[in-house]
Design a protein around this nucleic acid. Structure first.
Lengths: 162, 162
DNA sequence: GTCCAACAGTAGGACGGCCTAGTATCTCTT
DNA sequence: AAGAGATACTAGGCCGTCCTACTGTTGGAC
């Protein structure tokens, strides 16, 4: 059984006199690796539904909104992604007839994205699968999950994420 | 001050009867967001050095290897990325004259990537900046950092990462 | 009232990740 | 010794992210 590459990197960091940065390096590298692992699982579950995680997030944002519709700008701010990424995601969702663009009634610069019934179906079906196969699956102990949420919330808060 | 979008999503998950998956959803969403935040910081620090995080990881792997050279395959396995991603990164590092490709002495299928002196310089300078501005910076409390490493190690181990 | 700065969205391009397909080489079986 | 399967790498393409540049619209300063 091979050793943990991150623990190995940590050891090398200390050996090179970078001990005060070794923990931070290991934590950030861990974060990168974990995200990659988890994203791959999520994408695998979403693939049969014909969407990606980026598009799933847009769908759920619309799903939870009062009128099942939101301005492009709001979506970008909420998901913390660049406006062009929203354009990209909405383009593909619209091509799949899951959402549609509607002009804003008062501001002709703005565009409203509206969830279509087909999009609502996909959102519900995809969520059922994700809840069953990923979110609700026993990947780590429940206590550790809430711990993880708490620690990351600190990072996010410190970065001005909320 | 707006509330935490992830806490909000958690609340909605519970309200829709998905309580048993709410924590997992929040943890995974947190992971995604945190990775995005941290990666952006790392990339900003590396940008003046003319490399990205993907290429930095390759450079450091070579930097720590005995002969400052490794097979393409080994790099991909260690970094847990697709072989084509290694090809991509090495292409760009080679174009920047930081590494070079060398034929494997015994196996003509294989290619050895060798760190050049210029690559060594960049690796050291980039690491100094990363240690100073990201890895060693006080983004969360030290105890929380080791906690994060531990929890993520469980996820990675469960996923067969090591 | 006019003009200009700010804003909303999109087009085009760079980059990293993956997948599939293809070539070249090795290795094992028979 | 020969063929089959595994292995190493790469080319081309898709997707999501970002950046810059551009068009159109709004709203406030004057």
């Amino acid at each position: 059984m091979p050793s943990d590459p991150i623990a190995e990197a940590h050891r090398l960091w200390v050996a090179h006199g970078w001990a005060d940065a070794a923990d931070g390096m290991a934590a950030i590298t861990s974060l990168m690796r974990a995200q990659q692992i988890v994203l791959a699982r999520v994408e695998a579950v979403l693939k049969p539904h014909g969407i990606t995680f980026a598009r799933y997030e847009v769908l759920m944002l619309l799903y939870f909104s009062r009128r099942h519709s939101l301005p492009m700008t709001f979506i970008g701010e909420r998901l913390q992604v660049h406006p062009t990424s929203v354009t990209n995601a909405v383009d593909r969702l619209q091509a799949a007839a899951l959402v549609r663009r509607t002009p804003h009634p008062h501001d002709r610069r703005s565009t409203i994205v509206e969830l279509l019934p087909a999009g609502r179906e996909v959102a519900e079906a995809a969520t059922a699968d994700l809840n069953d196969q990923v979110f609700g699956a026993p990947w780590i102990k429940p206590a550790e999950i809430t711990n993880l949420i708490e620690v990351i919330a600190q990072i996010r808060r410190q970065a001005g994420d909320f």
